[in-house]
């Protein structure tokens, strides 16, 4: 099977974007998302797996084969670039079958595979066009087609949706995920968009400053963030984190806070953001900002004094200095 194992891999440029002894494993046939802010090393990690950067130390195996010192082509992977990297002078068809031509696949097989892939990515009508005559979404599909026609077991994606508008991004998200599952590919997907990570991934690796902050399934990252960084990175709006004791901060998700009339922490409403299905109420608690999610339309006026309440089981505790999660519930 084509699982990917990254073992204590390092790469540095003396600046941002390097990675430091990163280890993880992508199970065969699953979608692993590398998530993090810009400069956290997620793209570097992907490029190391692809073989586009040279590894300083550590090992990478794909399907049990050590590929650490192999060229990108020898790793038998396919890749989608953020810019799509389409060849501007070649037609859609030529772009898709580029790799097959390189590997001297016969014309009959080439045509057959092109037809199949064009159907899958919905480009059958546009095969003679040049990339410049396509919309952003169509270009994305060409890049996708070029990646899947190789029938490689491993597909790497470097922020493939970041150049699309919001509606298209949502569509392609679903499409890429279903494609990955249908073809049974092992996919490593880089993004800075936590929504993409949460909706698509089997496993999310959250990175920060070249190291892994947390590695887990989407619900684990959401429900048990390993640090205040993870807690703030995931969720819209992010988790509220307020100082609690000298060495501890207290975190609670906006949807777990309720507005009470008499009990709880006193707060002042600063603003209300109405989103349709729910409203986000921005409150001020002793100089710290706390967001509260209320379902539906919420007609409170700014400046109103309210009391905020939550249940102890929804509380997360973090060490103030290290930011690490402190296990064990809230001491009474």
């Amino acid at each position: 099977m084509s699982e990917i194992v990254v073992n204590a891999v390092s790469k540095s440029w003396g600046g941002v974007g390097g990675v430091d002894r990163v280890s993880f494993k992508a199970e065969a046939g699953t979608l692993l998302v590398l998530l993090g802010p810009s400069g956290c090393g997620k793209s570097t990690t992907l490029r190391l797996i692809a073989g586009l950067e040279e590894i300083e130390s550590g090992h990478i195996t794909i399907g049990g084969r050590d590929v650490t010192h192999l060229s990108p082509a020898e790793r038998r992977i396919s890749m989608v670039f953020q810019s799509y990297a389409l060849f501007p002078h070649l037609s859609v068809a030529e772009n898709i079958i580029f790799g097959l031509k390189v590997r001297r696949v016969g014309r009959a097989e080439r045509d057959e595979r092109l037809k199949k892939v064009a159907d899958i990515v919905g480009l059958s009508q546009l095969l003679d066009r040049k990339p410049s005559q396509l919309s952003g979404g169509q270009r994305q599909r060409v890049a996708l087609g070029r990646a899947i026609i190789a029938e490689a077991a491993v597909c790497l994606m470097d922020e493939p949706l970041s150049n699309l508008d919001a509606k298209l991004r949502h569509e392609m998200r679903t499409e890429i995920r279903s494609l990955q599952q249908r073809l049974g590919m092992t996919m490593v997907y880089v993004t800075h968009d936590q929504t993409e990570a949460m909706t698509m991934a089997d496993r999310v690796i959250l990175m920060r400053d070249g190291q892994i902050e947390q590695n887990g399934a989407p619900h684990e990252l959401y429900n048990q963030p390993a640090s205040d960084f993870a807690a703030r990175f995931i969720g819209t709006p992010p988790m509220n984190i307020i100082s609690w004791r000298d060495d501890t901060s207290l975190g609670v998700r906006p949807e777990h806070i309720t507005l009470d009339d008499h009990d709880g922490v006193s707060a002042t409403i600063k603003a209300v953001e109405y989103l349709g299905a729910d409203s986000i109420i921005i409150c001020d608690v002793k100089g710290e900002t706390v967001a509260v999610r209320q379902s539906g339309y919420c007609s409170v006026t700014t400046g109103t004094k309210v009391n905020l309440g939550w249940q102890n089981r929804h509380v997360h505790l973090f060490e103030k200095n290290s930011g690490k999660r402190r296990e064990g519930g809230l001491p009474q």
Partner: peptide
Amino acid sequence: IPPDLKEAAAVEGAGRWYFFRRI
């Protein structure tokens, strides 16, 4: 010429000469 064209071609297995000739 964007450098990622070269990288995309490298992933597809195109050698330096092939890339030069075709791209």
